[in-house]
Design a protein around this nucleic acid. Structure first.
Lengths: 252, 252
DNA sequence: CGCAAGTTTGACGCTGCTCAATCACTGTGG
DNA sequence: CCACAGTGATTGAGCAGCGTCAAACTTGCG
């Protein structure tokens, strides 16, 4: 028995049977949510921690003029910010891009698991650090790259993230439940310009995209044209335990 | 005896004498660094946690084509990511925008203080959450606003952050050690366009900026034209302790 | 069959970029 | 004390990437 949450955390820290059992217990009783619904809205108090088992979600803000900006995508295994319950109110909303299977974890259960199992704590910290690094890379992406590089970069990232949870086919295709409006709201572009840029990506035989299914035809070239370097995803090569022992002086 | 670090954390959690003493101990032995130097570079292993007592620093990335993007500013009291030592290597660099007074904290000392004093742990988590929320707001800023709103928004934010650590004069002026190139690299604009936009901000009598000193002439209007809402800075109104008790079920 | 949502296309204009020159200020050496 | 070099600010002219507006087309679905 496993799920995307466990698959993901196992990449960040070696988890034993006890830890895995604890994570399974946390992810019991998921509920189905319908596409388009919001898990939580800006201004509300964060009372629970959401965790995605299936489907896509997205963080977003709406500005006074009605424009929306998408801040992050959440895919299976992703957690909505483990410490967020500390805050007075949400500064952004989280909505669903597809039907989804969602676990609602009471903060105190999560905290308890983190205290009991240091490996879980470390894996969750790691996940948090990666989320933050991803935000930084998105900032660079919007700030410095043109529309072509921008969208290519996004596709490279989602390709690796989907790979990490085993959702990419052998033909390098995966589900991408995004409309062109949503891609635009993510990249700071209009849907019209996204459309034209996608056409160029197709014309240059880098991707295929129909029916919410994206195929990466030439991963190397797609990474090259977008300046994509996956270091910010910190997919960790060297054993985490060793590194921590070096830096903290003793086993934690 | 106090410093910007303590001032800042006190805003996030009520700290007793013991906690303050512990923070003072952590911030002993600061070193002077010269403007322009890097605290740490992309690709290096993060071995220590840096904390700024005086001066400005900035997180940045350099792309293959040589362009630079600035991801965040660090002002007195700010800490360079408390858990960063968990990562294999830095995904960005941190440089100094001015001469600075910097403390180098060994991760194990910081961890020890967090374990011994839950209030310190909470204050540091809070600070981390605010850093992340700020990144999200910057993403919205670059993604959705034009150059005029963008720069106005940045100035609003820095004004509040400098206020929080007592570095704003009664005339609403504070040091802003940024060149126009740096503002451009922050906002995804060229220095030429920043120059023209600053002229417009001056012409509309919103700000004054000479000699690296920024004066906010009309805070309300500056916030209005930029769509600035300070909620993402989570400056906390209601007592933190109460909120946590509600949500975790018992005093931590 | 017909609507709704999403995609595609075209024409046109503006924001912000490029290139290039000039200006202001400051620190340096003769 | 002045020439001058270096850094940052400012200005101008021309251009292009991307936005706007509007319409047509395509697909899924009740």
């Amino acid at each position: 028995m496993s799920n995307a949450f466990i698959t993901k955390l196992c990449r960040y820290a070696p988890l034993g049977d006890n830890e895995i059992a604890a994570l399974e217990k946390l992810s019991r009783n998921p509920r189905r949510w319908a596409s388009g619904r919001d898990l939580i809205r800006e201004g509300q108090r964060p009372e629970i921690v959401f965790m995605l088992l299936e489907g896509w979600a997205y963080r977003y803000k709406i500005l006074k003029d009605g424009s929306r900006h998408i801040l992050a995508y959440l895919v299976p295994g992703d957690v909505c910010d483990i410490h967020i319950f500390m805050l007075d109110e949400m500064d952004h909303s989280i909505g669903l891009l597809s039907d989804a299977l969602v676990v609602e974890i009471p903060p105190k259960d999560l905290m308890a698991a983190m205290e009991k199992y240091p490996a879980i704590q470390r894996a969750l910290w790691w996940a948090t650090l990666v989320d933050e690094a991803t935000l930084r890379e998105w900032l660079v992406n919007i700030g410095q790259r043109d529309s072509f590089e921008r969208i290519a970069h996004l596709f490279c990232e989602m390709w690796l993230r989907m790979q990490a949870i085993g959702l990419v086919n052998e033909d390098e295709s995966f589900d991408l439940p995004l409309t062109q409006v949503e891609i635009g709201d993510t990249m700071g572009l209009t849907a019209v310009h996204v459309n034209r840029t996608l056409q160029r990506l197709r014309r240059e035989e880098l991707i295929t995209l129909d029916n919410a299914r994206l195929t990466i035809l030439d991963p190397k070239r797609l990474a090259a044209v977008s300046g994509f370097r996956p270091n910010y995803l910190h997919r960790g090569t060297e054993p985490l335990e060793k590194r921590l022992r070096e830096r903290l002086g003793a086993p934690v």
